[in-house]
């Protein structure tokens, strides 16, 4: 299961193909890789299809609209190829179409990769791993963890604040000036409380003997095992295989240069 892969290595296994994909300007490579990611997502994790689609689909819409505009306004260098159709004063060329479809597919790959990481990674384990594998100072990692705990409380407090102000008879803000006023009214108590809480947590952490020193033992030892490297290898390897395939079939296009 991917959730048990060491988070730091997992991050690497997501980032490396992500960056390399950014260079592939053809359609074939990102398309095949996207299919590969989706297969991996459902074969090796327990993310439900419904949940995945729920997060993934808004991005699909966003990317579709984005690449549509991109298609109409492509830069000069991708304006070659025959003209597909003309609309008003826009010209649609085959090459522009290719480039934007590729762009859309690449973006979808990034999102699928990120989801694969986010949905299978526990924040605590990630921080522990960053501290143990990448030697990040404990001050930062535990700070982030402590902050992470605040998010739900923050939302809850904003909710109470809204109610309290409504009771006082402050209606919904109208106009820009009203909104600025409202923002000020909300932010002062929220900030005051956040600062107070942060200080308390800091005190509590120090009282428990936390000094920010790197010399500490680790209860959960985050080891890098063979299967972590296997995962890394297969994610990167799959990309190279795809690239090779598209080279073989003559689709490969790296950074705008067709290679064959």
């Amino acid at each position: 299961m991917i959730s048990s892969i060491n988070p730091t290595i997992k991050a690497g296994a997501i980032l490396v193909p992500g960056v390399l994909l950014g260079l592939m300007f053809d359609i074939f490579t990102p398309l095949v890789y996207l299919i590969f990611i989706i297969v991996v997502t459902f074969a090796f994790t327990d993310i439900s299809l419904k949940r995945w689609l729920l997060i993934f689909s808004p991005f699909v819409l966003f990317i579709l609209s984005f690449s549509w505009t991109r298609m109409l306004y492509t830069s000069e260098s991708f304006q070659g190829g025959s003209i597909l159709f003309e609309f008003w004063y826009f010209q649609m060329t085959t090459e522009a179409l290719m480039v934007s479809i590729s762009l859309a597919l690449r973006s979808l790959c990034f999102i699928a990769l990120s989801l694969l990481f986010i949905l299978t990674t526990d924040s605590t384990k990630l921080m522990l791993s960053l501290m143990q594998q990448l030697k990040l100072p404990p001050k930062i990692t535990y700070g982030v963890l402590a902050g992470y705990r605040f998010l739900p409380t923050f939302r809850h407090e904003l909710e109470i604040l809204r109610q309290a102000h409504r009771i006082r008879g402050v209606g919904r803000a109208k106009g820009i000036k009203g909104r600025v006023q409202q923002f000020k009214r909300y932010s002062i108590p929220l900030l005051a409380n956040a600062i107070r809480k942060a200080e308390r947590v800091a005190n509590a952490m120090e009282s428990k003997g936390f000094t920010g020193d790197r010399n500490r033992t680790h209860y959960h030892e985050m080891k890098v095992r063979r299967r972590d490297w296997v995962f890394f290898g297969s994610m990167v390897g799959a990309l190279f295989l795809t690239v090779f395939m598209s080279y073989y079939f003559g689709y490969l296009n790296i950074f705008g240069r067709e290679i064959n």
């Binding site: 924040s123 605590t124 535990y142 963890l145 705990r149 947590v201 509590a204 500490r216 033992t217 209860y219």
Partner: peptide, 21 residues
């Protein structure tokens, strides 16, 4: 509400023990 920095009970207690090596 504001004296813990970890998410689970186990990890919070481990945090203290890790601090004192």
């Amino acid at each position: 509400e504001s004296q813990f920095c970890m998410i689970t009970v186990e990890n919070e207690l481990a945090f203290t023990l890790e601090n004192i090596e």
